[in-house]
Nucleic acid binder design. Structure first.
Length: 155
DNA sequence: GCCAACGTTGGC
DNA sequence: GCCAACGTTGGC
């Protein structure tokens, strides 16, 4: 059976909540708390083990891509949706019909420098990325092989 | 099915 | 901290 081509993604996290330092320390973590259907669909339906992930720091002093990670598991229900104590508890979800899915992500490496949102916005080769479109709030998005290559060449 | 109100995201 | 942009909710 032919192996599916590796795909690429960008995933946002607020470093105050979960940073590249946290992932480096813990090596692998469930990407929990996503409560947006489009982002969920990318994780649940699009991601495959081994896919490349750009780890992006949002809502901070210097927003940008700070490291590389990899999809480490298939999608499974986000346990925090069932926990009434959890920040992202969803009373409308149930174990019989879970609404939110996630994958585990594992640390690959830090970038040598932050590739900032500012420079990505100014880069014509990245104009099609959802990330740089105004008002974009999607926290999990696909990255084309060309964009991936271009971004890593900036490092 | 429309759409106003609301809560959240996230750059600045 | 501000606020524009967006997604979701719920009344009708």
């Amino acid at each position: 059976m032919k192996k599916a081509a590796r795909q690429y993604w960008l995933m946002k996290s607020e470093p105050e909540a979960f940073s590249i330092d946290d992932l480096e320390r813990n090596r692998q973590e469930p990407w929990d708390g996503v409560r947006n259907y489009q982002a969920r669909n990318y994780m649940r339906d699009g991601m495959r083990i081994g896919d490349g992930v750009l780890f992006y720091h949002s809502n901070c002093a210097e927003p940008g891509i700070v490291g590389l990670a990899e999809v480490a598991t298939d999608a499974y229900p986000d346990p925090t949706q069932f926990d009434p104590e959890a920040l992202h508890f969803d009373p409308k979800s149930s174990r019989a019909a879970p609404r939110w899915a996630l994958v585990d992500v594992k640390f690959v490496r830090r970038l040598k420098r932050i590739i900032t949102l500012r420079e990505m916005q100014a880069d014509a080769a990245l104009a099609d990325m959802a990330l740089v479109r105004r008002g974009n709030r999607l926290s999990v998005m696909p990255v084309t092989p060309a964009q991936w290559k271009h971004l890593l060449a900036l490092e």
